[in-house]
Simulated assay, not measured.
Amino acid sequence: MSAVAVPGSGGRGRAKAAPALRIGTAGWSIDKRYADGLPAPGSNLERYARRLNAVEINSSFRRRHKPSTYERWASSVPEEFRFSVKLPEEITHDRGLVGCDEILKIFAAETAGLGSKLGTWLIQLPPKLAFDAKTFDSFFDLVNGCSDAMVAIEPRNATWFTEEVESRLIERRIARVAADPARVLGSGEPGGWRGLAYFRWHGSPRMYYSDYDRQALFSLGRRLESARLWGAETWCIFDNTAAGAALGNALEIS
């Protein structure tokens, strides 16, 4: 990691290497402020992937992409690069995880185009969606049958932050996202399955816009390193993209 990270956090002296630390942004737009650090030639994605090792595809939330599109994206990045893909709005927000069999199967078939570079499915839930055990079990039975991708869930309703839900997430090997700003008590810390830690930094105090200063990035860097050293593959995605701050933050902390 860069100067904002924890000093002395390398792997020297450990018998086993720590899991991957993946830093990226929601999408791969290149703000002109950072273009010189991501030089041509190549597409924006190719240039982005020379400096960062992960990206979150948010466009899948609103619209479908062909398998060939995912295949093209996968072919544009190095072998060690990974994609996280956000589940469609129709599944999470419109249907509330109910009656999604065909839609989810289609999504799985499309994202399979990423091949070995598919890292994570991101499931962001609407604030109104309360936890329901029957819905949870039915939906994640289907998820487990559709894809081998890791799963990170970002609930935004207080009913998801209980010991019962935590146990279910661990049993299902589902990570709960750590979000900033934390909209619900407990949502600022990673939870669920400890094999994956997924941080989504949306911009604070103004969501999607605010830039994180050097001190905030240093603090975040310590948290990422701590998660990685407990044995989790650790993702950090900056979603403060509206004014172009995300890329700068990712580059500084990577």
Rank of each mutant, 00 (worst) to 15 (best):
P78S: 10
L169A: 03
G248Q: 12
K105I: 02
E89C: 04
E171T: 12
A18G: 07
I253G: 09
R172Y: 10
I153S: 03
T159R: 09
R62G: 12
W230Q: 15
E89P: 00
F83N: 10
A40N: 11
H202N: 08
D239I: 13
T120M: 07
T159A: 12
L185T: 15
L122P: 00
S167M: 09
S43Q: 10
D239E: 13
L196H: 02
P127C: 06
N144V: 02
R176L: 06
K134F: 05
E90G: 01
P78N: 04
N58D: 15
M1K: 07
R22S: 01
Y212I: 14
A175W: 06
G192Y: 01
A216R: 15
Q215I: 09
I153G: 02
E189Q: 10
Y208D: 08
F81I: 07
P7S: 15
T241R: 02
P7N: 02
I23E: 07
R50V: 06
R194M: 01
P7H: 00
N44Q: 15
C146E: 07
S84N: 01
E56Q: 06
A20I: 03
H65C: 06
R228S: 14
D211L: 08
E102S: 15
S43E: 00
A74W: 13
S68D: 12
I91T: 07
A178H: 09
F131L: 02
S254E: 04
W193N: 12
E154S: 04
K86F: 13
L118M: 06
W235V: 03
V77Y: 05
D213R: 04
R206K: 10
D148M: 09
D180F: 07
W193T: 00
G27C: 04
S60G: 11
A232W: 01
R95P: 08
T135L: 00
A227H: 08
S147A: 04
D137M: 10
Y70Q: 00
L169T: 02
L142C: 10
I123H: 01
A109N: 13
A175V: 05
P126F: 10
E110P: 06
D137Y: 05
F238Y: 08
P19D: 03
F136K: 07
R200Q: 05
C146N: 04
A15M: 12
K16M: 14
G244A: 07
M207H: 02
P155R: 12
T241I: 13
S84P: 02
S59R: 11
R47Y: 08
F140Q: 08
R176V: 09
A108D: 05
S2H: 15
A250W: 00
S68G: 12
E46H: 00
A232D: 05
N144S: 14
Y208W: 08
R22Y: 10
A179G: 12
D180V: 14
R222M: 11
A15T: 03
V55M: 07
A35M: 01
